[in-house]
């Protein structure tokens, strides 16, 4: 078992990450937030239905696409983009310094504690339909997986290949991929927790819940 408190103390030394907000598409950018030091909020609500602070609007084909802050934090840097400028997809716009939430700290530590099944090759991944149906109907942590089971479909270059799970038997505790996006080789796909260790993982989570103070 990993040393949770040591890991927590390590994270506490730099309890934030910087998020670069980039133009998701091509278009003309109009900033709504114009100064550094401004505090912004990320999406909130049970289903993240309330968008975060409006940072900018990207205008293309006459439609203004709002760009909201992805996380809570503080705007610390603007890249050299003028208000009203045409920007290409992927152009960095500004940086937000975001203090880690309890959930994010839990995710960091889970990545150390769970067995991570990693992408054998770069591509898009989907769960095979048996697992997909179970997750959709019963939620995560309802699926038992064993070494050698058909787990995922790898889609790349318009071809699909079945990927078999390799690792300890257990339940699929958390997933790290989105079927709309390509996963780099070696990127984590899902984390598996052997059934006899589920209680240990719960203990880890409880420790973080009590030992981590979220900052503004």
């Amino acid at each position: 078992m990993i040393d949770i408190m040591a890991l927590l103390n390590e994270i506490k030394k730099a309890p934030y990450r910087e998020i670069t907000v980039s133009a998701p598409h091509t278009g003309r950018i109009e900033f709504a937030v114009k100064d550094t030091g401004i505090k912004v909020d990320g999406a909130t609500g049970t289903w993240s239905e309330r968008p975060g602070t409006l940072l900018a609007r990207l205008i293309r084909e006459g439609n203004a696409k709002p760009l909201h802050a992805p996380e809570k934090g503080e705007v610390v840097h603007f890249f050299d983009i003028e208000d009203g400028q045409f920007v290409q997809a992927g152009t960095p716009l500004l940086n937000i310094r975001h203090f880690l939430t309890k959930q994010e700290v839990i995710d960091i530590i889970l990545k150390k504690a769970l067995h991570l099944f990693k992408a054998p090759e770069k591509g898009r991944y989907y769960f095979v339909s048996e697992i997909d149906i179970k997750i959709k109907s019963q939620g995560l942590r309802s699926v038992n997986i064993r070494d050698g089971d058909e787990a995922l479909i790898l889609s790349r270059m318009k071809r699909e290949t079945i990927i078999h799970y390799e690792g300890p038997d257990g339940i699929i505790y958390t997933t790290y991929f989105n079927s709309n996006e390509s996963v780099e080789m070696g990127g984590p796909l899902f984390g598996v927790c052997p059934e006899d260790q589920v209680n240990n993982i719960k203990t880890v989570i409880d420790k973080i819940q009590s030992g981590w103070e979220e900052q503004e």
Partner: peptide
Amino acid sequence: RISSYQDPN
């Protein structure tokens, strides 16, 4: 540079 070849916008 664009985000996708399949996005007409």
